[in-house]
């Protein structure tokens, strides 16, 4: 083998480089996302529930919001009748964020963890958060 040493050193550097993200985090536990729902509006709710059950919202909220926007903007609807019969205005900015006024501790908590960057906030105004 020509230049065997150089090739092996090169390979070692390469392997060290691509596995860097793994061993640099080895043994360190990453903090699990922990979305908070302790906003004033939610605190005052008699029964602390979202428009649909929590597990559904956890996995499907993005699809639901996508449906809502087409239903409102393109089809002229406004009212959502939830599976338990409750009626809600379909609006991210006015309905969702009215309760979840803690975007940083609610939305961003998981979005940052899973490295998704939804572009909702380019246009929809996020609630003013008091820095406490």
């Amino acid at each position: 083998m020509y230049n065997g040493l150089k090739i092996i050193i090169g390979l070692l550097i390469f392997v060290a480089f691509v596995t860097f993200p793994f061993y640099s985090k080895m043994g360190k536990a990453t903090t699990k996302p922990d979305p908070k729902i302790d906003t004033p509006v939610i605190q005052e709710l008699a029964e602390k529930k979202c428009v649909e059950p929590k597990d559904f919202m956890k996995t499907e909220h993005m699809k639901m919001l996508n449906d809502w926007r087409d239903l409102v903007v393109r089809e002229g609807n406004l009212i959502y009748v939830a599976s338990d019969g409750g009626k809600y205005i379909m609006s991210l900015q006015n309905t969702c964020m009215n309760c979840h006024s803690n975007k940083k501790k609610f939305c961003d908590e998981c979005h940052n963890y899973s490295a998704v960057v939804p572009y909702c906030w380019d246009c929809h105004i996020q609630p003013k958060e008091n820095k406490t």
Partner: peptide, 17 residues
Amino acid sequence: LQRNWLEAAQYSPDPKA
């Protein structure tokens, strides 16, 4: 399966519209 849940959802315009 997933879509069915959303499709079963009901929605309407505001009656005041």
